[in-house]
Computed example of a mutant assay.
Amino acid sequence: MPKKFIMQEEINKCIEILSKGGLILYPTDTVWGIGCDATNEEAVAKIYALKKRENTKTMICLVANDFMLEKHVSAVPEVAYDIIDLATKPTTIVYDNPKGVAKNLVAEDNTLAIRVASDKFCQYLISNFKKPIVSTSANIAGETTPQTFQEISIAILKGVDYVVNLHQDQNSGTPSSIIKLGNDGVVKIIRE
């Protein structure tokens, strides 16, 4: 079967699950991630429960492109576009005043970590789904982030509604850099 057809089939299965408020385990431009519809509060709550994570610990949201980013952030600072264009590895930016996402994704200080996906599968999935998707590492809170699909625990594998059948034989990348961009122009590196 041609690769393109297999990818489209996987995207269709993911969209079916995401549309019903389900959880997917999927390869991202960094590490394997647990994902859900970032606009669905109940779905986001399922991820917190699966990861045994306090819902005060925020998660990353993936968008397909700048247009989708602008739709979910009140004001994207100009410097954000330079950071996205010049970054040599996947870079997540924490923005002030997110909008149109689940309330339990937004931090107490009214910020949200968002990354424009650089991976083709993620870009196509999010573009086809037409909504941002949560991306959080595929581990229980406090445990080591899996570097390969094989390192993902049984609890996580059994806790999601669908496991994407792509790139399972490849090593994951490393977690993204995280930069906080305040609307006041202050740039703070949270994770290199």
Rank of each mutant, 00 (worst) to 15 (best):
M1L: 14
F5M: 13
F5N: 11
M7Q: 12
M7H: 08
Q8P: 02
E9V: 08
K13T: 11
C14R: 08
I15S: 04
I15V: 13
L23N: 09
I24E: 08
P27Q: 02
T28V: 01
D29P: 10
V31C: 02
G33T: 08
G33N: 04
C36F: 06
C36R: 08
A38S: 02
T39R: 14
Y48M: 06
A49V: 13
L50P: 13
K52L: 11
C61D: 02
V63T: 11
D66G: 00
M68F: 09
M68P: 07
V73H: 03
S74R: 15
A75C: 09
V76N: 02
P77G: 01
P77F: 00
A80Y: 04
A80W: 05
Y81W: 10
Y81S: 08
D82T: 14
K89A: 10
N97L: 00
N97H: 03
K103V: 13
N104T: 02
A107H: 00
T111Y: 04
R115F: 00
R115C: 06
V116R: 00
S118W: 00
C122T: 02
I126D: 08
I126H: 04
S137V: 01
A138C: 00
A138L: 00
T145V: 15
T145K: 11
P146K: 11
F149V: 07
K158N: 11
Y162D: 09
V164G: 03
N165E: 14
N165R: 14
N165T: 08
Q168E: 07
Q170K: 14
N171V: 12
T174S: 12
S176A: 07
I179R: 00
L181K: 03
N183D: 13
D184H: 14
D184G: 13
G185N: 07
V187Y: 04
V187A: 08
K188I: 10
I190P: 05
